[in-house]
């Protein structure tokens, strides 16, 4: 596992996919739309690569549903 751990809150995420958009535009390009639904019915984003810790997703998320943790190891 990489140094950064992306945490997506399924209860809060509305599936706007702005995090996916910005991660591809300015981040590591490691977020994508998944088949899974969030609790509120949107498309849950998923992590498909190694996060670079730029936190663009964290800043753009209108629902404060995604954050990036620094791994302890």
């Amino acid at each position: 596992m990489g140094r950064f751990n992306v945490v997506i809150d399924r209860d809060l995420c509305k599936g706007c996919l702005l995090c996916v958009y910005i991660c591809n535009k300015r981040g590591g390009g490691i977020l994508a739309e998944s088949e899974e639904r969030t609790l509120l019915g949107g498309a849950l984003p998923k992590v498909i690569g190694e996060c670079i810790g730029c936190r663009w997703c964290e800043r753009i998320c209108p629902d404060l549903a995604i954050s990036v943790e620094v791994s302890q190891c």
Binding site: K14, G15, C16, L18, I60, C61, P62, D63
Partner: peptide, 13 residues
């Protein structure tokens, strides 16, 4: 929270 704003509404940003 969650707030009432629509998915992708800029108010949350």
């Amino acid at each position: 929270i969650p707030h009432i704003w629509c998915p992708g509404c800029g108010n949350g940003i």
